[in-house]
């Protein structure tokens, strides 16, 4: 097509995706139904992957869709379905409108100030555009990750396993704590002792005590 400017097309694409991402992020935070909010979050994560494609990072885009859209948003949807009072609309805001206004002002100030700093920072001098390298080389990325920095990848895996094992342990401890009132020490349901058993046990304890004193 004559007169077609790819740079302009890329900028239009950016603006379109940015608008969709911002609207979806707002809906994820403000939609009344939390299940729909989780869906909007998943869609938002998919569109963020579009930015990674624009930024020549297809591997990261795939990972973003797999982890965020496929994993985290599904986890949030299941959590909102599992927790009975998660969809209570009274939980959406703080009791006083003043707290909401203060939060809004703080968020706007932080966004404007950081955005302003990002714009005035001399990026052009810091990173010369002549050196922009297109990092679509997946073999290069794999080599860099596994051969040059393999130990760090393994450390990440270890951190993730530790976090997940910790999460499961926490849940089991909490469950065991709740069940301890109705079950015995070993998870077997406690039964009331008969009088004979109690007497035998008392005698055994007394014998143990006396041997302990002799020794």
């Amino acid at each position: 097509m004559q007169g077609f400017d790819p740079a302009l097309f890329e900028q239009l694409e950016f603006l379109l995706i940015a608008g969709i991402v911002l609207v979806l992020a707002y809906l994820a935070l403000e939609h009344k139904e939390i299940v729909y909010a989780a869906f909007f979050f998943g869609f938002m994560a998919s569109f963020v992957a579009g930015f990674f494609l624009l930024l020549e990072a297809p591997f990261i885009a795939g990972m973003q869709i797999a982890v965020y859209t496929g994993g985290i948003s599904t986890l949030i949807i299941f959590a909102s379905l599992l927790l009975p009072r998660a969809q209570d609309s009274t939980l959406e805001t703080f009791a006083t409108p003043r707290a909401r206004q203060i939060s809004l002002v703080v968020a706007v100030v932080v966004t404007v100030m950081t955005g302003f700093l990002a714009v005035i920072f001399p990026w052009a001098e810091s990173f010369s555009e002549a050196f922009v390298s297109i990092s679509q080389d997946l073999n290069g990325l794999a080599h860099w990750l596994w051969f040059e920095n393999g130990i760090y990848v393994q450390m990440i895996a270890l951190i993730m396993i530790t976090a997940l094992v910790g999460a499961i342990t926490l849940l089991r401890m909490d469950k065991a704590e709740q069940l301890s009132s109705i079950t015995g020490v070993f998870g077997v349901e406690a039964e009331p002792k008969t009088t004979e058993e109690a007497t035998i046990n008392d005698d055994e304890h007394a014998a143990d005590d006396s041997t302990g004193v002799d020794e």
Binding site: L29, I34, S80, A99, L104, V106, V110
Partner: peptide
């Protein structure tokens, strides 16, 4: 802008999932 929006949600909402 996304960081500010997320921060707003974290400050305003009381629902842990939100």
């Amino acid at each position: 802008m996304l960081i500010g929006l997320g921060g707003y949600g974290m400050m305003v909402k009381r629902n842990l999932i939100r």
